[in-house]
Design a protein around this nucleic acid. Structure first.
Lengths: 249, 249
DNA sequence: CGAGATGTTGACCAGACTCAACCCTAGTGG
DNA sequence: CCACTAGGGTTGAGTCTGGTCAACATCTCG
């Protein structure tokens, strides 16, 4: 639910930051569980809650990285401005994600709110102390980072597809995966971002995004309820299109 | 030196696994240092040294992830086979890198040796124990993962470039950065992998790799000593080409 | 209700893929 | 030591997808 703008009032799971990541190795006592209540409390003690309006910038590339953020509600876009003319989207971030990747004390990307956003703000100084003293928390962070790494690899994989349709298809699958985990959902994929945002993420023009969605619809792979809601109705065919088997024929 | 096939015998820095990553935040006592001797010893105690010949497979996608590896010498290619017809290259890995990203106890990519490779093999079970008891080691791993995450983001950025020349240019810069850090070097970029490997990484056909390199050479951006050695001679122009300013005119 | 942003559609064109032929180099075995 | 060969690398010709530009539709928010 947290993703829909109309919030059904049952959201506030306030209990401190929440970071979830699947297990790396399933040995030991780590079944890929989320943070325990104690761990969340530990983080909550050093966190504050911050809100951003739709479109608002959260931080700029190169700013001093004084905190990391943990999304409670909403969608965030992280992007690069430098070394590039039009903004390239590095990633979309959803509830439970961690934002604030830094190098040498500076943020490496800029971020802005795609929808209204609520987050925990966790100062790095305090976090660092907690990390040093709490190995199990460390391990959770490591799992989360590995998860993010896999996701970024997936993004790169998406960008390696040559056809616009394949890229948009993979993007829809990605959104669906994210949303399925969280909302029991109508099986519909919600697109909170603009066509330009999507284009900047999948590496094609907004026009091509439009055309690809339309093409997917005419081929009977998806249906489009409106500009923000799609539904995947033929997964088999979608897979085929994604694999880019030298089309038709 | 470790990258050149002809090894000048001064290599063996044997002292246990070596993992280097720049600082995340430069607060506290972490100036982005590499592992200390004690930490390396801690890992050495649970590691074994393994070797692979050029072209040899290290592990297959989906194999039980029983160990991670830390490269001492050589270059490794990590790639996806499933869900894709021709092999897509996820990343190239160099000395000091860590290989063996897993999810739920299975490797998520396959890997093979591009050149002859020597690595430390670190069993996950033992590693996990070490991690739990050694927060500072944890922190190093976290730094390394953040580093890998930035690199993968860079790969995605590379793949978002539309022109083949820009992609190849970014690839050359990437290789140079990796190599500059380690060899005082002749300012030459060594290309240990085939054109197909490069193409699979930058998302274009091997022919396009060939053409792009040739084009870069004729434009005076690089010189090609032979098929495996390039030298960047006009960085300004390279930057321009990479930024894809709607060319000529 | 109106204006500016967002989204869609169409026409044209450039660049990358494919296919195919040829060259070059490294590694093989005589 | 050399000739041979197989695979990698290069080059060229034709095709096709997606970018660009431009016009129009639609939506959103003041």
């Amino acid at each position: 639910m947290a993703l829909e703008p109309a919030n059904n009032s049952d959201d506030p799971p306030l209990g401190g930051p929440s970071i979830v990541a699947p297990a790396l190795w399933n040995s030991g006592d780590n079944p890929g569980r989320p943070l325990t209540a104690e761990e969340r409390g530990l983080l909550a003690a050093i966190s504050t809650i911050v809100r951003f309006r739709k479109g608002e910038r959260i931080y700029q590339e190169g700013d001093r990285a004084s905190a990391v953020f943990n999304i409670i509600t909403g969608v965030v876009r992280s992007y690069k401005t430098s070394a590039d003319e039009r903004g390239y989207t590095v990633s979309f971030l959803f509830p439970d994600d961690l934002i604030g990747l830094a190098e040498s004390g500076k943020y490496v990307n800029a971020t802005e709110a795609v929808t209204a956003v609520t987050m925990y703000r966790i100062p790095t100084a305090a976090l660092e102390v907690r990390l040093r003293n709490n190995p199990s928390l460390d391990f959770q962070i490591i799992s989360k980072l590995c998860h993010d790494l896999r996701e970024t690899q997936h993004h790169a994989f998406l960008l390696s597809r040559r056809h616009a349709i394949a890229r948009v298809g993979l993007f829809l699958q990605m959104l669906e995966t994210h949303q399925a985990a969280r909302e029991g959902g109508a099986g519909e994929v919600y697109l909170p971002m603009t066509r330009s945002d999507i284009g900047a993420y999948v590496g094609i023009s907004p026009e091509a995004v439009s055309r690809s969605l339309r093409e997917l619809a005419t081929q009977g792979v998806i249906t489009l309820r409106d500009r923000r809601h799609a539904k995947i109705i033929n997964r088999m065919l979608l897979e085929t299109l994604i694999s880019e088997a030298t089309s038709s024929r």
